[in-house]
Nucleic acid binder design. Structure first.
Lengths: 236, 236
DNA sequence: TTATGTGAAGTCGTTCACAGCC
DNA sequence: GGCTGTGAACGACTTCACATAA
């Protein structure tokens, strides 16, 4: 819809990068950072792709959507490539994340190290239960860690607006999820990560990604079952 | 590496359900169960697909891989369809799940209701840390709930074999994940759900699904960033 | 008439294979 | 010689549109 020219911004970012490629970029980025920390300076598509669990052709094709950041006959400069993928992903600027639901899952997210290193900052914690509200939880921030207090559900809008958060994480039980979602959207949030096992309804322009733990297990079970049948067939 | 069957790739004609379809079946199943609990007996592909967040054409195409369980001009019988999807997913038989790593994430999985209703039973909890080992945690089971004790990492093989678990969940920090994975595989596990932010290496015949919380956020951030540029362009 | 089930067409994503550059 | 970058071929998934059955 919009044609954006001029200015220095990530190459032909946005337009034309397939969703499947976008979903792999974070993995490439993580592996590159690990290589860099191990002192590796140059890497071939073959070696890097192997560490990422993809084919080298797929890796090179993915990179071709961002630009040409390699050197033929040599490979890729680790830090140079890291920088460009990082920029494409937008992890150069810090994204504010609000977590709604401070149960075990919420706490797992809060204690998850590496959010900050990947450009995220947890700026708000919200819960419904009075015995959790007011609790101070350690949230990592750049070098140090800060105690963030859990706010009541009633303050949701105020927290989102006040912290200028861009991403909302729903870690509540299923029956609260749609209500929380509606309020996040009304407060201006357009990116939501949903852990509740419900299909959320949102207006156009809002993106929802979902992670359903039981669904993942069910997919595994499907294949497990099929392997069982194959083995039976072999024994017959 | 790979156990070669007599024939080549194209396994069993007629039984080739696309991966994308398999990934949606659990959602259809969940929505159908909810409808059933709400007392709905019959539903059209249009209505059901809307509740699942997919198009009706996609829904019908997905079902066509399983068989024809609808009635033209009428729709689908909720319980009849539920049964067939359930059967396809293998949730009629209970799958044994071992969880390695009893931190916040592990606890979130343990307290996740609805595992049992979808055909999973948590049969083992394993952790490395002495202060967690021995702790009794409430695990739901059919009607009641049972206290399951956390076992030490050293007992992993014994637990997997003793409980006949089929699925292993890795909820450990990244640096332990590959080691745990190797031991799960060596104990006979062929289906693994990995929450650690590493690419696991496994032999052929073992399926790994991964859930990386930071990756999901990074994908959201990519699109968030893109929207920002679009808005800038509009203001220019 | 209504709503399913499905070939056919279209879109998206992956793999191949090799030209181009170091 | 070695490795990247990429059109072209291939395959997977989605959407369309309608024949089919209640």
């Amino acid at each position: 819809m919009s044609i954006s020219l001029g200015k220095d911004r990530p190459r032909e970012a946005g337009r034309g990068i397939p969703g499947a490629t976008v979903a792999r970029l974070p993995v490439y980025h993580r592996v590159l950072v690990a290589l860099s920390e191990a002192g590796v300076q140059t890497v071939s598509s073959e070696a890097l792709a192997a560490k990422c669990g993809v084919s080298s052709a797929k890796f090179r094709k993915d990179l071709s959507y961002l630009g040409s950041y390699g050197t033929r006959g040599v490979g890729y400069d680790v830090s140079y490539l890291t920088f460009h993928i990082s920029r494409e992903l937008g992890s150069s600027q810090p994204w504010g994340v609000v977590i709604v639901g401070v149960g075990n899952l919420g706490r797992a997210l809060i204690s998850y190290r590496g959010f900050t290193s990947r450009g995220f900052a947890i700026v708000g914690l919200i819960d419904k239960h009075p015995d959790v509200v007011g609790e101070g939880l350690a949230v990592s921030e750049l070098e140090t860690s800060v105690a963030l207090k859990v706010s009541p559900l009633a303050d949701l809008e105020q927290i989102v607006v006040g912290t200028k958060a861009q991403i909302g994480v729903i870690a509540t039980p299923a029956d609260c999820a749609q209500g929380v979602c509606d309020r996040l959207v009304a407060s201006g949030i357009r990116s939501i990560l949903n852990f509740a096992p419900v299909v959320l309804e949102v207006p156009d322009g809002v993106e929802v990604r979902k992670v359903d733990l039981a669904v993942e297990l069910q997919i595994l079970a499907f294949h497990e079952q099929r392997r069982g049948y194959e083995q039976e067939a072999m024994n017959a």
